[in-house]
Nucleic acid binder design. Structure first.
Lengths: 303, 303
DNA sequence: CACGGTCATCCAAAAACCGCATCGGTCGAT
DNA sequence: ATCGACCGATGCGGTTTTTGGATGACCGTG
């Protein structure tokens, strides 16, 4: 005997019936609009009124009128129904990947040039996909990918291939960062040989393994041995040292968008021509439908 | 074969099941929370997913997880459910008269003192009842009462008693409005005799029948015949003429809250002592529950 | 490999719902 | 005053939907 008639919640069907009746002010026409006959509609409204404990419609056999409470409830009912419709729509759009949210992890270095361009492209190519950006270093990114905190990361090799898919999204050359007054500024483009036995601000093997290993390999292949005067991992710190004329530095092209007074950039010939690579990485089993649309915007720069 | 499976709308029951499942991440516990067994809950969620065309929950036999679309839909579902609950609550409150809206018609004259006091009292005594104020003359008020545009009016006699209930809400005395320099200002209180054969700004019999008839009767009973120099219906216009020293005027006490330079007020002895009455009037068959609460705040001033 | 846990499926019983026929009440025409 | 049209409420049988217990399939664990 517990649950007989204390069912204190109404159903959407009842709201729809009520709205129809309240708008038509005529049960027959309202029923027609609801594709049913008049008796069930009558009952649905009685049920709704009983659940609310409130008379919503004043019905004489001659006319149907809204009570004050009914007038107020009509507004609420319309709002609820509108909300259900829009909820269904947006959910379908999210499921189809047309809309949604992508959590993006990125390293500071990729933020200089690649990320702004990506945001621009997403804004026009997939305007309903919201991006939540989180700066984090490579190891944080792979961790966050596994826990689901981010859907996609942008980082540099080496990349842990297990469970992940990757795509190279940018490839760029190295440029030399030189302080004002450096004699190498006279040349339009430099080669690695120009750094032989000259002070060079180097990448730390721990914090910037990728750049460290790459530069080491490049110099070894070119049989050049620069004089490493410092080891840093953050590019903007390196440029600060360059400005202080501690030495030169080799940084990815994207870093030229960092403007430091008295720091000038010159192209450097390397093998291969654009050795600095940036990869997108995501879990192969990520089920976020927006991810597909996001990745579609990611075809690698080939310029 | 008509409506088998193209029923493109979900029901609240399905939302509630989904929210329970999404919060518990366990169909058994969710079912328990919904006071049902697990199979029907499973089925409701399947139905919801089928209607939306979207998988909301990723369920392996080992764990239940929200899909991205499910995460989004969960927020919407919670919002919809909250809305239904608050809609039910506010509707019940409106039906009980605890909250609601009262449309009030009032004449300009009642706005000077009575209406501000009423608003103050309503604000503390029935804070959830909203008042919509519409200034209108007496005939407009009775019309609007009949069409339902206003729930209650405030006006002066004579009152059309058919279908209406009334309550005297204010009774006030008459005061004389005198220009600076008038010799009658020397007295603290006047009698009607002080106006015999003196210029008096009179009420128009059409626009201000109540005051016109009342003053006429008062003077007749006192055997006094003032010299009517103008006939107006709006009190503030009369006071403007008083300031111009065209003559004196007799106005309800409430008008003393209109401050005009060089216009001074003095009490006038009349029979009865407070002849100016203001009535609330409403349709006896008005079904607005807030009206009762409103009228409860209306016990007449007996000070 | 057996076991416990979890969700989906099957099925009979129960509940809800629908539509038809009809009732009671009201208004307008005659 | 009476009749008929109209309208919403109600009673009732048949159908659809829902429910809950039993069962099945799957998976990770000891």
């Amino acid at each position: 005997m517990t649950g007989a008639s204390f069912w204190s919640q109404f159903e959407l069907r009842q709201l729809r019936c009520f709205v129809a009746a309240a708008e038509e002010l005529h049960f027959g026409r309202a029923a027609q609009r609801m594709n049913m006959t008049q008796p069930p509609l009558s009952r649905q409204i009685q049920l709704l009124e009983h659940v609310l404990g409130v008379k919503l419609l004043d019905r004489t056999s001659r006319a149907v009128k809204l009570t004050p409470a009914g007038r107020a409830f009509l507004l609420e009912a319309r709002r609820i129904i509108r909300l259900t419709e829009s909820a269904a729509m947006t959910t379908r759009r999210i499921a189809s990947g047309e809309a949604g949210t992508i959590n993006v992890g990125f390293t500071a270095a990729s933020g200089y040039r690649f990320l702004p361009r990506l945001l621009l492209r997403m804004g026009t190519g997939a305007p309903n996909i919201a991006l939540v950006l989180k700066e984090m270093v490579s190891t944080e990114q792979t961790e966050s990918l596994l826990t689901g905190r981010i859907d996609v990361g942008f980082l540099r090799p080496p990349i842990d291939r297990g469970e992940f898919s990757t795509l190279r999204v940018a490839r760029e050359g190295l440029v030399a960062a030189l302080p004002s007054g450096d004699e190498r500024l006279a040349k339009a483009a430099l080669t690695l040989a120009d750094f032989d036995k000259k002070p060079l601000i180097m990448y730390a093997p721990e914090g910037a393994r990728y750049f460290h290993d790459m530069l080491t390999a490049q110099f070894e292949a070119a049989d050049v041995t620069p004089q490493a005067v410092q080891s840093l991992s953050q590019i903007h710190s390196m440029l600060a040292l360059v400005r202080a004329a501690i030495g030169a530095a080799l940084v990815p092209e994207a870093a030229t968008s960092l403007h430091f007074d008295d720091v000038h950039f010159r192209r450097v010939e390397t093998i291969p021509a654009r050795p600095v690579e940036l990869f997108a990485i995501w879990r192969s089993d990520n089920d976020n439908p927006a991810l597909t649309a996001f990745l579609d915007q990611l075809h690698p720069d080939e310029d």
